[in-house]
Amino acid sequence: MNTTSKLLDIHGLYKDFRGVEVIKDLSLSVCQGERHAIIGPNGAGKTTFFNLITGRYTPSKGDIYFEGRKISGMTPHRINRMGISRSFQITNIFPGMTVFENIRSAIFSKKGIRWSFRQRVSTMNDVNQETEDILKLIGLDSQHHLLAGSLDYGAQRALEIGITLATDPKMIMLDEPTAGMSIEETREIVAMIDRTTQGKALLIIEHDMEVVFSLADTISVIHYGTVLASGPPEDIRNDATVKEAYLGEGSTC
């Protein structure tokens, strides 16, 4: 196995909360440019898995490597600076600030302009231009002066993904980006994700099978905190154990 092409490499990961094992012996890897979908029933441990990678939790056992460097045990901001950026299942934005500032705060961080007070933000043309570019990319450029908290739900979800993209990560992690959306909104946001994540590694948790099969080139099924099956979409579709555990017998997707 050639480990250098592996961006994310996880082997034998465990996490327990007060003795309850939520993640057990989970192994998974993501390669450069791979689009990897995580599926599995509710409570399987998918979001916990995301929280372990991004440093919200530390694993009880096992390590996580990103570009060959151990990231488990690091703080969330360090992991983000390594090149991993995530979105949240429950919309997690800066509600009292403008849409523009939501994105710009991420651009600042990406450029390493965090504590600077040499310059006023309004005169930083390159930062403001990059912010406008991201806003166009996620289709919110016409709403950039509105308060993020006043946007409708679909636009807030798009903003959530925009903030994630704006830090220009090597690996993008999206936690159920289409949760609670109408069919039309889902279609729009999937097209946006497809457009904006070209060429980058993508790790996405998703329930909508249509979305999963249209975006992913690898699918992993997580069940009871471990990887039940992993492989190209066609294999997963035909895997008997997966059908039994998750898709349900006689599923037509």
Partner: peptide, 28 residues
Amino acid sequence: YLTLTPLGRLNLCMRENEERARFIGYNT
């Protein structure tokens, strides 16, 4: 002046959502 600099804007970000600020790379 401080409120107009990146540090001043970061202070607002942390008021609005400290966790999100952490996950986009700020040492809050």
